[in-house]
């Protein structure tokens, strides 16, 4: 029982990281309608920018905030350069282009920073103990940040005009445009928010799961895809639900079935979803 509860704590933190990342991906799919294979690199950039700014003397939290905003801007810039000119040509050219962009970003980082794994200068913290369970502070912090992000996305989509326009553009771009929504602006805003959230996901990922290196986001990409598709692509609330299932599946699969196959559990869930319910739980948009 203790082991079960302990695994649950880690599963929730993992789910939090996945949820943040998956919500960002699904938001951009909603408006642009293609699956961005370069999305993982935005996580990587979030972690690297934070590391660089922290190395330049900023404390970790402000460094992360500035880094995440920078990733948002980079996302808009990259979308304008690489994706916008292809928007009218359907999903395939965009798919291949996003793979190309992933190669470019990942290897630019490797060119200048090498492949050696790096870590944030986080001090070693004692976990809190409650009974037989321990709660590492980093995991708890991640859970809180993830919940905060989910709430922020919820409020953005439901309570603000921008969110309303994003939902309108996602449901029916043509109709949104004739109703006076400036869809170009909405697409830019969506890229900004989506990339920003990805950057945040990367910072969280680097705190809990993996060392910081140029391939970290690319290796995590399929886990994000799994959560996104499981929930129903383009559905932010579905992505959150999908993330919980994937996070729990990964941690419990690792704890109880086979320790070396952590990511493979997520991929297996992904494949099962694609085969039996490709539209996902919430019914993805096409």
């Amino acid at each position: 029982m203790t082991e079960f509860l302990q695994t649950s704590i880690f599963a929730l933190a993992t789910a939090g990281v996945i949820a943040v990342s998956a919500v960002g991906l699904t938001l951009s799919y909603g408006v642009t309608r293609f699956i961005n294979f370069a999305y993982g690199e935005f996580l990587t950039m979030g972690a690297f920018f934070t590391l660089i700014l922290a190395g330049a003397g900023l404390p970790l939290v402000p460094a992360a905030i500035v880094a995440v905003l920078l990733v948002g801007l980079a996302g808009v810039l990259i979308a304008r350069i690489f994706y916008d000119p292809l928007m009218s040509r359907g999903p395939f050219p965009l798919l291949i282009t996003s793979v190309g962009v992933a190669f470019i970003l990942q290897n630019l980082l490797r060119m200048f920073y090498g492949s050696d794994p790096k870590r944030f200068p986080v001090p070693l913290m004692r976990p809190w103990h409650i009974g037989n369970l321990f709660f590492p502070k980093a995991q708890v912090g991640i859970l809180l940040v993830s919940l905060g992000t989910m709430l922020a996305v919820h409020l953005l989509l439901r309570r603000t005009m921008v969110g309303k326009m994003m939902r309108a553009a996602s449901d029916n771009e043509m109709l949104a445009r004739v109703s006076g929504v400036d869809t170009r602006r909405i697409i830019n805003i969506t890229w900004f928010i989506s990339s920003l959230i990805a950057g945040l996901g990367g910072v969280l990922l680097a705190i809990t799961q993996v060392a910081i290196q140029p391939a970290m986001g690319w290796s995590f990409l399929l886990v994000i895809f799994a959560a996104t598709l499981l929930g129903g692509i383009g559905r932010p609330y579905g992505a959150m639900l999908g993330a919980i299932i994937i996070g729990v599946g990964m941690e419990f699969g690792t704890a109880y079935i086979a320790a070396n196959y952590t990511y493979a559990f997520a991929f297996a869930i992904l494949v099962v979803v694609l085969l039996f319910r490709p539209q996902g739980i919430m019914g993805g948009i096409t």
Binding site: F82, I96, T97, V99, G100, V101, A102, F103, I104, Q106, N107, L108, R110, M111, F112, G114, S115
Partner: peptide
């Protein structure tokens, strides 16, 4: 940086794809 040239190679492969 020993990874410079191998990485540059794949940056260029990415650019070619695009």
């Amino acid at each position: 940086n020993p990874t410079f040239v191998p990485s540059l190679r794949f940056v260029i492969i990415g650019l070619l794809l695009v």
